[in-house]
């Protein structure tokens, strides 16, 4: 079978830059992402990977370059050139953002069902029974016991909070999901469960994902492609196994060789 027909990329990033003002930030980031791909962004602290994700997610405004996103309707929009209303609408329908700390991505005083149902209510859902049924369905899919639908996230473990955050994002059927170290800070067994869940959801839902992680094992498990960042720049990119098994750049070689095997 020949390569897939020339499908347009879902996300096109051109010469993206951000300057924090002290000489740090990111610069010269270029890449394209096609539907169904999982792009891992790896690097150590200060590499710029989280800055890049925040630029993609709209929490930071670029100092240069642009981010083009192809909507479900087929229209290509510059994410930072959109009217605020349209940007927010995209953010709660087609886009998802999973924060490293689930408490940043949840309403802590709102029940699990309310958290999951919010995107539906924010886009016009007005039938309590159906909203609740959708929330129950999603809790099941992220392996949260459905009986906890009325409990607030403060009563959940870290791993459950993270799964709740994922459900809250996925309920609107987003096409592009950004994840910031989604397994960071979780116990190893909890991490394994979450990774397994993410792998399954990405495959079942055909999600396109950009996942930032410092854990190369997570990158290998979830990502099809990798970008290695250092000092605010992308210093190497390619297929995940290319970058991890045949690293070209000196820093990548250092990174790969530094990982301890279990």
């Amino acid at each position: 079978m020949t390569p897939p027909p020339d499908e347009a990329p879902l996300l096109t990033v051109e010469n993206l830059a951000y300057d924090y003002g002290n000489g740090r930030g990111v610069a010269g980031v270029d890449f394209r992402l096609w539907p169904g791909e999982v792009l891992g962004v790896v690097g150590e602290s200060g590499s710029g990977k989280t800055t890049l994700l925040k630029l993609l997610g709209g929490q930071l405004v670029p100092s240069g370059g642009r981010i083009l996103y192809r909507t479900a309707a087929g229209e290509v929009v510059d994410l930072h050139d959109l009217p605020e209303g349209k940007r927010r609408l995209l953010a709660r329908t087609e886009l998802g953002f999973v924060h490293q700390n689930p408490r940043d991505g949840l309403r802590l005083a709102v029940s699990a069902g309310g958290n999951v149902g919010e995107r539906l209510m924010a886009t016009g859902a007005r039938h309590y029974g159906r909203i609740r049924a959708a929330a129950e369905d999603w809790l099941g899919r992220v392996e949260i016991e459905q009986g906890r639908i009325d409990d607030i996230p403060a009563t959940f473990s870290g791993g459950m909070q993270q799964r709740l955050q994922i459900a809250r994002n996925l309920v609107s059927g987003p096409r592009l999901v950004l994840m910031d170290e989604p397994t960071g800070g979780l116990d190893v067994s909890v991490q394994a469960r979450l990774l397994d869940l993410l792998r399954g959801l990405v495959a079942d839902l055909g999600l396109t994902v950009v996942i930032v992680t410092h854990d190369l094992g997570v990158a290998r498990l979830l990502a099809d492609r990798l970008m290695v960042m250092q000092g605010g720049r992308v210093i190497e990119e390619g297929l995940t196994d290319q970058v991890l098994d045949d690293p070209q750049a000196p820093y990548t070689q250092l990174l790969v060789s530094s990982v301890l095997a279990a």
Binding site: M1, T2, P3, P4, E37, D224, L239
Partner: peptide, 8 residues
């Protein structure tokens, strides 16, 4: 391109 290899 990476995506062509993924398709293969």
């Amino acid at each position: 391109e990476p995506r062509a290899i993924l398709a293969l």
